[in-house]
Design a binder for these strands. Structure first.
Lengths: 389, 389
DNA sequence: CAGTTATGTTCTTGGTACGAACATAACAAG
DNA sequence: CTTGTTATGTTCGTACCAAGAACATAACTG
């Protein structure tokens, strides 16, 4: 509500703040705590909550009493309240889940797909199978950049700027779509390792590196919605040509493709991920060639992270995908090379480098976040309150 | 005002929005236009403006009548309203200026300094010479990172993490300090080449490269206030060791130091800037060795810009310092190498690369912006309204 | 069992923006 | 020169909001 603001909008605004607080909180809180949190009176809080309860957005349940004072109620999502559906669309499979206010997630269905845009229709059917009047919004995580918000490019499926407006038609629920690496980062920023950070970075390391800059819990999208291709900066000095059309990309030295290339296989997609996992297993088993491949990967990763830290000064950096393995097995290599790439004056407070806390669920959780973001605003809440009185 | 919000705060909020609009507008606007802009009624606008006039924050002057309708007034800064002072602190000199709401700037004094922290005391004296009750806040642009907002490091003056809290004491006016490259970028984003951009980058090219990421008109500061050291990423493949302690920095190939090194001089500070300017002049005169040095500089610049564009997806990039010369004389080289470093799928909409519009005044104008930012908020305006009724 | 404490509830109050109706000062057309 | 048109200013009554004070309530404590 950056624009007009009447006293009636004030109420809505506080209700949105309250819903947002409930959604973002790590633990449920009581109505009295909510009043303190928002800086409003107990009487006002009661009025806000009352209306939200009527609109089936919040529900009050008796809080287990602790200490003195009149017992109060815990604010929880309404059992008949709106749901966000979240879809994680991967190379061969998809997952559909329902997410309540507050982030509680229930997996609804998973399926395989044929790697063609038909998959979207299948997913729409799956959504229909689980559709309920409670469904309010759908978040969709895919891979590859979505230019200008509607042209989807997934190179490993051979999708060349597929027009999303044709795949996601008017029969779809309200839908928000974004790419997996960005959404995984967003999820870490909201509910994972990057929670509470003002400036942070997240990288998902798969075949190559995708990532996102997170500022105050929001993922940055760039001018054409294609921000985040950190893997395509020449940060580790590779002499090779990248499939993206540029020479020397960081992704040539970090990720599954780099591991595979080391063992004489042609980088690409498909079975490459399993090959990379095998390299990790062998390295864990102590095989020296595999270990040294991991060393190189970790060194290049660290070097790039240090360079990015110079420019962007993150408080913390989280990793997902292969990054989790690298940090588990080669933390020291990463940190050493990161420090070496950091400007000297900042080596005494390097960014924390950590594994993401949401693991494989990152993109799905991130999709849920952007879905909820799309409705946790004055306009939607206002309409909801008006329709349910 | 993210926290409490009563109906009284609503008025303040709208008044801040109005002041912000006046400050940010390219051209003055009338009271009726203001009402439309803020989405409020004419009556409300009259009330807001009336109070702001009484607080000597806004002034109404008759607008030259155009077309039909009752004549209205133009909203301009109050002639006795608050002033921000802005300081640009450079290698050997400083400039002090006064800036009104809306950005109108008056230079007050310039001076030289002895390159020691004494300079701050001299500047404080100069401020005192021009001090008026109208002075509300001081913005200060310096060079070098200011860690955690209070430890200033200026390597070319040999200042190693000077404690700002000792230099800027309680006898100073309310003071906001930041580094020149970041402030120059902010100024471009607010009043220059990057105006209105959601995502943009600015780079100041001097001995090396400093810059800032600008999102929705705000410069990003990072977790320790040291974001912006883009020059210390290995973007152009230099094999050399950088003075910052890292190998391969972009700054080794772009900027005055790179030009100087090419001609056998030791990079460093002092006379280097003039040497670099001489190289530029010689190149303009057609001297081939100088021209080729410029080519290399421009190529490395373009390459780095492309890499950064992949990651951050700016709509536009502006340059200051030596960058202005490079873009004037070698635009094509920069753009060619930028395109080459861009991922293929985005080469058809590369970021606009342009010279900054504020030239040498960038840091000063940026300092004025952060100074005004510090007071154009609910708390300050509320206090001002309360004290002047 | 009485006192303490934290919270819920009720009612009054000051303040806000809005809408409608009217006033005003320019221009335009005859 | 007069009358209509147009955009803006002004006044007044209305709906709404959050705050504050006073009181009620339900636990715990000693």
């Amino acid at each position: 509500m950056p624009q007009t603001m009447t006293s009636a909008d004030l109420r809505i605004r506080n209700q949105v703040r309250l819903l947002r607080a409930v959604h973002d909180a790590a633990e449920p809180f009581t109505r009295a705590e909510a009043a303190r949190l928002l800086g409003i009176g107990r009487n006002t809080a009661a009025a806000l909550v009352g209306e939200l309860e009527q609109a089936r957005l919040l529900h009050e349940i008796p809080a287990e009493t602790s200490g003195r004072g009149r017992p109060t109620t815990l604010l929880v999502p309404h059992p008949e309240g709106p749901l966000a559906f979240a879809v994680d669309f991967r190379e061969d499979t998809w997952t559909l889940a329902a997410v309540e206010l507050g982030g509680a997630i229930t997996e609804l269905e998973t399926g395989e797909h044929d790697r063609t845009p038909n998959a979207f229709a299948e997913i729409r059917t799956a959504v229909a199978r689980h559709e309920t009047p409670r469904l309010a919004v759908l978040g969709f995580a895919t891979s590859g950049p979505i230019r200008d918000g509607h042209r989807l490019h997934i190179s490993h499926l051979g999708w060349d700027e597929v027009e999303l407006d044709e795949l996601i038609g008017p029969d779809w629920p309200r839908t928000v779509i974004d790419n997996d690496a960005r959404l995984a980062g967003l999820a870490e920023a909201r509910r994972g390792a990057l929670r509470g950070m003002g400036t942070a970075l997240h990288f998902h390391i798969d075949f190559d590196i995708g990532g996102t800059l997170l500022l105050a819990g929001d993922a940055q999208r760039g001018g054409h919605n294609t921000a985040g291709e950190f893997g395509h900066m020449p940060l580790s000095g590779s002499p090779l040509q990248c499939m993206c059309g540029v020479q020397g990309c960081w992704s040539l030295d970090v990720g599954a493709n780099a591991l595979i290339r080391r063992f004489g296989e042609t980088p690409g997609y498909g079975a490459g991920r399993e090959l990379a996992q095998e390299v990790v297993r062998r390295a864990e088993a102590g095989e020296s060639e595999a270990g040294s491949a991991l060393d190189d990967n970790a060194a290049a990763l660290g070097k790039g992270l240090g360079a990015l830290a110079n420019a962007l000064d993150p408080e913390a950096i989280s990793l997902s995908g292969l990054g989790v393995d690298l940090i588990r097995m080669r933390r020291e290599v990463i940190e050493t090379h990161c420090a070496r790439a950091l400007m000297e004056f900042r080596r005494n407070e390097p960014p924390t480098i950590t594994a993401g806390r949401l693991g494989e669920a990152g993109p799905l959780r991130g999709a849920a976040e952007v879905a909820w973001d799309a409705i946790l605003n004055a306009d939607w809440v206002k309409a909801r309150l008006a329709s349910r009185r």
